[in-house]
Simulated scan of single mutants.
Amino acid sequence: MPLTPLDIHNKEFGRRLRGYDEDEVNEFLDQVIKDYEALIRENKELQNQVLNLQEKLNHFANIEETLSKTIIVAQEAADEVKNNSKKEAQLIVKEAEKNADRIINEALSKSRKVALEVEELKKQASIYRARFKTLVEAQLDLLSNEGWDSLEGEAPRRREALEQD
């Protein structure tokens, strides 16, 4: 068990002949008691400081651990958001490609229909032109035919005949 200031104060030394000066010894013991008490107080203060610092260290260690966990969770969340964004972007690109393919196919289909209609109209125009040309040629042939001359002379005769009746 450690020595206390009270133990030092109560310590009695045996007497011998030619011993030490009792007042000097008592003064020295008083000084030792004061210094020892100061050391004990300082030791207790340092122990309290050590405890406080240990508590703070534990507190900061907990904060550090919490921050580390938080950083890991945040990194995982960021990675998850990044992966989800990539997946969503891929889905958007696939959807856009599907729409583009559909639009292209519809446009090709419409252009084929228009091309067929144009060809049909060209055929119809060609047929119409041929028929019209034939009709015009027939009319020209009819006009250039000598039968018109006889019709011209016959028309006044018919009028005269009608007038006489």
Rank of each mutant, 00 (worst) to 15 (best):
N105G: 03
K86C: 00
K98V: 04
K133C: 05
R112L: 12
G19Q: 09
R131V: 06
S150V: 12
N43G: 14
V32K: 07
G147M: 07
E65Y: 12
E88Y: 10
V81K: 14
G147Q: 15
Q31H: 15
I8Q: 01
D23M: 12
I92M: 14
E163C: 08
L46T: 08
P156R: 14
E80T: 05
L6Y: 04
S68I: 02
K122Q: 12
K44L: 10
A125Q: 12
K86R: 09
E22W: 01
P156G: 06
L143D: 10
E27C: 13
A74E: 11
Y128M: 08
S109L: 10
G14W: 03
Y36P: 04
F13Q: 00
F13V: 02
L51W: 09
L39H: 09
R158N: 11
K44H: 12
P5Q: 02
K122P: 01
K133G: 12
Y20A: 15
S111G: 05
A107V: 03
E119R: 04
N10G: 00
A96N: 07
I33F: 05
L121D: 09
L162K: 14
Q49L: 13
V50I: 13
R131P: 00
I33V: 15
A77Y: 07
A130S: 15
A155T: 06
H9I: 02
K44S: 08
V32S: 00
K69D: 13
E106A: 03
L29Y: 06
K44T: 06
L140C: 06
K98Y: 04
L46P: 01
Q31G: 07
L121V: 01
I33L: 03
L116W: 09
